[in-house]
């Protein structure tokens, strides 16, 4: 099924998720319909509580929808998880303090049973992909926050998942570091051809990175707009001053405002 290039990588139809809390049921996702094609860079943007992270976690089979259809690589998310078809990057790097950077990147490879030689080879490859070649033997506390997050991206890339799910990976970093990492992420995406799902609450970040921007709004969490970016694939940082960029950013802002209109 993976060979079926035409089928969307992620396909959601009438997806609903209701959390039962002490204050009664909370509709985290309501009637979500979305399809993501192979090679897309999709950003999910919206205020907190809009369900963007929840939706990403549904794709990763870390949450389970109450109703509706969700397919990842044309199979249910749980099977996709067991097939190790995605890498997940959390908001915090979450590196193990008792492992070196190389050891941390090796973690999924050890769990998935790659041979020792293969592990070394892959660690070397992905560390150079995120520009951390010289830091393999360092421990996490010896690296800056941005470098730690790059290491955690390397960890998610180490095995052959063609989907990369990122939950506000640069949310805790300052803007200068974030700009550089955004630029690097685009290069990485161009080089690897992966399908990326990216949660953010920064409009410039979403517009700069994405081929498709999904605008969401809270109570209940739902999609209010899906914007196909008209920006070229090649994106220098100063594209953010172009008229095209500002037009898309404006539409995102409008979408976010519309979602808030009634409260």
């Amino acid at each position: 099924m993976k060979d079926d290039v035409k089928a969307p990588v992620i396909f959601a139809k009438d997806l609903n998720l209701v959390f039962e809390t002490n204050d009664g049921p909370v509709q985290a996702l309501k009637d979500v319909n979305l399809s993501i094609e192979r090679g897309d860079f999709v950003s999910f943007i919206g205020p907190s509580g809009c369900g963007k992270t929840t939706f990403l976690r549904c794709i990763a089979a870390l949450e389970h929808p109450t109703s509706g259809t969700l397919k990842v690589n044309s199979i249910p998310p749980d099977e996709a998880r067991k097939a190790r078809s995605y890498g997940y990057v959390f908001q915090a790097a979450g590196l193990y303090p008792w492992r070196t950077i190389a050891g941390n990147v090796k973690l999924p490879l050890e769990i998935m049973g790659y041979s020792k030689a293969e592990q070394e080879e892959r660690v070397r490859k992905v560390l150079s992909l995120v520009d951390l070649e010289g830091f393999a033997k360092k421990f996490p506390w010896q690296l800056s926050g941005g470098m730690q997050q790059r290491a955690s991206i390397a960890r998610a890339l180490a095995f052959d998942a063609d989907i990369l799910l990122m939950d506000e990976p640069f949310g805790a970093l300052d803007e200068i570091v974030r700009d550089r990492l955004n630029e690097e992420l685009l290069k990485l995406w161009a080089r690897t051809g992966k399908t990326i799902g990216f949660v953010t609450h920064s409009i410039p970040e979403a517009v700069y990175l994405s081929t498709k921007i999904v605008v969401m709004s809270p109570r209940p969490g739902r999609i209010t707009d899906v914007i196909e970016s008209t920006l070229p694939k090649e994106r220098p940082l100063d594209i953010r001053d172009s008229e095209e960029f500002l037009k898309i950013a404006h539409r995102v802002r409008e979408g976010l405002r519309a979602g808030h209109a009634y409260d």
């Binding site: 990763a60 998880r81 067991k82 769990i111």
Partner: peptide, 12 residues
Amino acid sequence: GMQLDLLRTYNA
């Protein structure tokens, strides 16, 4: 929870 979730994404 995040660390345990990470291992779940690896199907550990």
